[in-house]
């Protein structure tokens, strides 16, 4: 699924790479900490970084729309963990993920920071994002295929008057 429906305030970010960066973040958000760590080990650990924001668990109020498409309303909250890391070269990476996995948020932030370095972007995409995206696609494809098997194929029985 693509990440759509960006917030109006995103208009302030005039960065052509933002959609791709957000797509990478979406993949990281759905991965496990172990999977991200495995991918990171292939990208190299030659980049120094510090924790700009130690991983922090909090809440985000989930909003829906009245009637499905109308005015927003609050459904209920979800746990979210966020972290930010700063590379020695100045880039700040952000990790925002559902759930309470601090390590995952921190690793996601590190990936996001590395992604912003031109020389690192492709390795991050190839070794971390691409395999995870593939894994997630397969999982989704299976769920969809199982769902599709429960589709009702209506057929109408001819009844009543004789055919002539």
């Amino acid at each position: 699924m693509s990440v759509t429906n960006s917030h109006n305030r995103d208009a302030n970010v005039a960065d052509a790479t933002l959609p791709q960066r957000r797509a990478a973040m979406a993949v990281l958000a759905k991965a496990t900490a172990a999977d991200i760590a495995r991918g990171l080990s292939h990208v190299g650990s030659d980049v120094a970084f510090t924790d700009a924001r130690p991983a922090e668990i909090g809440l985000v109020m989930l909003r829906g729309r009245i009637g499905g498409g109308g005015a927003p309303f609050n459904i209920g909250e979800t746990t979210v963990t966020r972290a930010a890391v700063r590379l020695a070269s100045g880039e700040t990476g952000f990790g925002y993920v559902l759930g309470r996995d601090r390590e995952k948020a921190r690793l996601a932030a590190l990936c996001d920071a590395l992604w912003q370095i031109d020389a690192k972007r492709q390795p991050v995409e190839d070794h971390i994002i691409a395999p995870l995206r593939q894994q997630q696609r397969e999982r989704r494809a299976l769920a969809r295929a199982q769902t599709a098997a429960t589709r009702v194929d209506f057929f109408t029985l001819v009844r009543g008057e004789d055919e002539r």
Partner: peptide
Amino acid sequence: EVEFFAEDAGFTVPLG
């Protein structure tokens, strides 16, 4: 999909 405008990042981030 859940998305959230992250004040620190300055843009809307996907959460999962």
